[in-house]
Every structure is written in structure tokens, then in C-alpha cells.
């Protein structure tokens, strides 16, 4: 199973600032191993962030995103103590969901 994400969610003014680190190989499928065989592609396709049952961010990713991706964004409408839920889904159908509680500014 994939490793948990590291999520920080903090109030900055009236917005929630979210920083997420995801543990993922993000293999492009273009690299070769030591014996010359192609290393199969393995990358996150979709990222969804929800807050209070509403999607606040939805992203489609590809192989150009770096290994162990870092995502940084802000959204309006969140309050300290509420939860932010993040889900990624990769090209092999593997999925990971983690959540964090919004901290005060």
C-alpha cells in the first residue's frame, strides 16, 4: 500500500493554505533499468481535494510531474478545526486518501 501523504492545512487570512507531499514513484515509462528494459509507467492521474463535501480542487496529472510530488494551493471557505480530504488515483488504479484538520492562522 502507498505511504500516507504529509498534509499541512493552515488559515492564512480568510483562506486555507494547503501543502501536500505525496510519496509516489511518478515513473514516466521512458526510463530504462540497468539491463536495458523499460521501467513501466507508474504515475498519479487524478488528484481531488474536498472540504465539507465540496470539491475545492480537481487536477489531472501526467508523467511530467516530479517524483514525490509537492502540491501547494489555497481555497476560500474553510475554518479552523474543519477537515480537508485529499485523494490521488494512479494509472494502475491504486488509490490513497488522507485528511488533515485545518489549523488556525
Amino acid at each position: 500500500m502507498a505511504d500516507p501523504m504529509r498534509i499541512r492545512a493552515n488559515m492564512t487570512g480568510d483562506k486555507v493554505e494547503v501543502k501536500v507531499l505525496m510519496a509516489h514513484e511518478m515513473e514516466t515509462g521512458l526510463r530504462k533499468d540497468a539491463s536495458g528494459n523499460a521501467i513501466p509507467a507508474h504515475f498519479i492521474r487524478n488528484v481531488t481535494v474536498t472540504h465539507g463535501g465540496k470539491t475545492v480542487l480537481s487536477a489531472q496529472w501526467g508523467t511530467s510531474v516530479s517524483r514525490n510530488p509537492f502540491l501547494h494551493f489555497r481555497f476560500k471557505g474553510g475554518k479552523p478545526g474543519e477537515k480537508v480530504t485529499i485523494t490521488w488515483l494512479d494509472n494502475r488504479g491504486e488509490k490513497r486518501t488522507d485528511e488533515a484538520v485545518i489549523a488556525g492562522g
Binding site: D3, R6, K19, L21, A23, R67, N68, F70, H72
Partner: peptide, 8 residues
Amino acid sequence: QESNPAEL
């Protein structure tokens, strides 16, 4: 510096 995957 702001996004160090070493944390993982």
C-alpha cells in the same frame, strides 16, 4: 526548501 520530500 519549502517542500522537502525527506519528510516522507
